[in-house]
Amino acid sequence: MLLAVEALTSHYGRIQALKGIDLTIDRGELVALVGANGAGKTTLLRTISGVQPASGGKIMFDDHNITANPPDSRVRMGISQVPEGRQVFGPMSVEDNLRLGAFSRGGAGTAEMLEKCFAMFPVLEERRKQPAGTLSGGQQQMLAMSRALMAQPVLLLLDEPSMGLAPILVDEIFAAIAELKAAGTTIFLVEQNAFAALSIADRGYVLETGKIVLADKGEALLVNEKVKEAYLGI
């Protein structure tokens, strides 16, 4: 087991956003997390990355208890996140954004990973000298994903990578995710686009107001009556 989250809780002041989350992710798996807006998906990813403190429970990564580790130590251990809203370093060049992605490795392997990222998203190579803030939304998403990959993560956390993108770009992003999975990266994919996410996922969890309410194989959730009604609009 690569990641094991046990009874995890997290608060924003008095508001409890996570109410005791249990979930596991095995090496090489693609696990999807779906849920409505405000369910706590982003909070869960933030807590796994360590940029949001846990108020209770435990996060085990690679058999280490990382619940109290600072975010930079978690990145060095192999947890990279593509945050909601992309969060690129807007005034810095595309290339600098990517180089900073390898910060946790002290820049090691930068040249080789740059090539891989440019092969996956050629538009980034064309725009490598341009400020990241001038890219389109889809290109920024590609950049945010590439930046996370520059760290050569063991576990990749993706927070709504398809949000706000045109359908053709959504397809491109999901194709890239499938490619990463095929290459062996373990992926935890958070999506409001439940159909697309569950279609490519090995397993899925459904989150409702800070609690996991369903857990099953991806294809099983796709035909689950409750999921169909609440998240697939069928």
Binding site: Q87, V88, F89, M92
Partner: peptide, 16 residues
């Protein structure tokens, strides 16, 4: 500089 531009993203690439 990255920390100045976006603290969250800086933390997520492993900058202390």
């Amino acid at each position: 500089l990255a920390t100045a531009h976006n603290r969250l993203a800086a933390q997520l690439v492993g900058i202390n």
